[in-house]
Write a protein that binds this DNA or RNA. Structure first.
Length: 439
RNA sequence: GCGGUCGUAGCUCAGCGGUAGAGCCCUCGGUUGUGGUCCGAGUUGUCGCGGGUUCAAAUCCCGUCGAUCGCCCCA
């Protein structure tokens, strides 16, 4: 007798996995998202999990926490390129488009639903491995502004279809904020952007005032203009008038106002309250140069954005000598899914796709039962044949535990009738496998 | 990387100096071709890991690892 060594597995923080019944829901979500993307003519691509570190770092230093991969048995003098797991899908897209520029047709509209990895400390709504569902449109030299309204429309349609509760997408345009600050004579904007971005967390207007006083040399008048600016929030293009009353003028500001007004005017078909122009949206210090999007739950705005993105004037400039503007938006699938899972405390019944469990009456009836299962399968049902010659109570119990909605009794003797039992109400009837349908 | 909380059975947890517990789950049974309820029986633990204090540690102390929440950052 040898002692069995057991390595007791622990959950790996930030790498979620689900039971089959939750995974089923996740798959339905993916199906829904895919079908909406495709209904707008977006095509699917998939890129490798890894990119060369040089690709990820092409825009300069990588400030994100990324996972580098290497072989366990690598030699010390290994010369192969260093690889890293991608931390988003935009950088891989840029590389993909640059590399296949000749073979793609523009505007290139693609969707991508893959895992991405970040080494940050996990917490509620934040994982180290998670899914993002991206759509982007890339064009050569000129990308019509209509797309800036199309991509958020698509995402809102998806979120409504998933029944995720009350949410709101906030839109702004980088040029408005940057132009506004430039018009105020502010050149070094990083600290200001950070203060505006953190407004909700640092205690609203007073928090912003304090932070701006301590990190910048702005005067009270400038600070009050900024505070007033961050309050501008309208369901349509009327934000333009509000900005005008602040009396700041700048060419970039004007351009941004026109662009965002255009986008808002093209979103008026969306149900009231779902989209709003909100000039306090900063969207990090990323590569966005125009429209930016952010989406939050109304009853839990601090949870983090569940759907965001924006326009970038030159997506692939680091990889190809072409001018390729793009606009894209991404659903934080895992963040959204986990939120709904915890909030709704899903208790799904079905643990398997099986619609019908075919009973095995006895070992010598197996061939006949298997034939019944085949007939039902060809008619489009998901069918399993019970695996062993066991008491019917046991077979019924199996269907019950797995949440299989129907149990099928093939004839127990030659010439007998088929019967099907509806497990939800116990009703059992004589039926024909060629014509029966689930109620 | 920095703080707060928490690690006991597969799961949820009780026990908080004196021989490891409950509920759930799981397995079997309550006779012949029918689940959920009920009843009975049974299996399951390096009390996260290492050290210290003590006659005695799951229990007190220190360390460590892990999880979790928050900060930074972000989907």
């Amino acid at each position: 007798m040898s002692e069995k060594k057991i390595y007791k597995p622990k959950p790996v923080s930030g790498f979620p996995e689900w039971l089959p019944q939750i995974r089923r829901i996740e798959q339905h979500w993916f199906d829904h998202i895919r079908s909406v993307f495709e209904s707008y003519g977006y095509c699917s691509i998939e890129t490798p999990s890894v990119e060369e570190l040089d690709v990820l770092a092409a825009k300069g230093e990588v400030d994100k926490e990324i996972y580098v991969i290497e072989r366990l048995h690598k030699e010390d003098d290994d010369k192969e390129a260093r690889l890293a797991l991608h931390f988003d899908q935009t950088v891989p897209l840029a590389r993909y488009v640059a590399q296949r520029f000749n073979d793609l047709d523009f505007p290139f509209k693609r969707y991508q639903m893959q895992r991405v990895w970040r080494g940050e400390r996990p917490q509620a709504g934040r994982f180290r491995e998670f899914y993002q569902c991206d759509i982007d449109v890339i064009a050569v030299d000129n990308l019509p502004l209509h797309f800036d309204a199309e991509v958020p429309s698509i995402m809102i349609e998806i979120l409504q279809g998933l029944d995720v509760g009350a949410f709101q997408m906030q839109l702004s345009n980088r040029k408005i904020l940057m132009g506004f600050l430039a018009g105020l004579g502010i050149t070094d904007s990083v600290d200001v952007l950070r203060a505006i971005d953190k407004k909700d967390k640092i205690g609203g207007d007073d928090g912003v005032r304090k932070l701006l006083h301590s990190t910048t040399s702005l005067n009270d008048q400038q600070i009050e203009k900024i505070i007033g600016f961050t309050h501008i929030k309208t369901p349509d293009s009327s934000f333009v008038e509000h900005v005008r009353t602040l009396g700041v003028a700048h060419e970039t500001l004007e351009q941004g106002l026109n662009e965002l007004a255009f986008v808002m005017n093209n979103l008026q078909h969306i149900d009231a309250g779902l989209v709003v122009a909100d000039l306090s949206i900063v969207r990090g210090l990323d590569y966005y140069t125009g429209t930016v999007y952010e989406t939050r739950f109304l009853d839990d705005p601090n949870y983090g954005s569940i759907c965001s993105g924006g326009r970038y004037e030159d997506l692939a400039g680091s990889y190809i000598n072409k001018h390729l503007p793009g606009v894209g938006i991404s659903i934080g699938f895992s963040r959204l899914f986990d939120y709904m899972r915890l909030k709704n405390k899903w208790n799904p019944v079905r643990k398997t796709p099986t619609d019908i469990l075919v009973v095995l009456p006895s070992e010598d009836r197996r061939a006949h039962a298997a034939e019944t299962a085949r007939i039902l399968r060809h008619r489009g049902f998901c069918v399993e044949l019970y695996h062993a010659d066991q008491k019917l109570a046991k077979q019924l119990g199996y269907a019950e535990k797995k949440g299989i909605p129907y149990v099928w009794f093939p004839p127990f003797d030659d010439g007998g009738a088929h019967e099907v039992k509806d497990m939800t109400n116990g009703a059992q009837n004589k039926v024909d496998p060629m014509t029966w349908n689930a109620s």
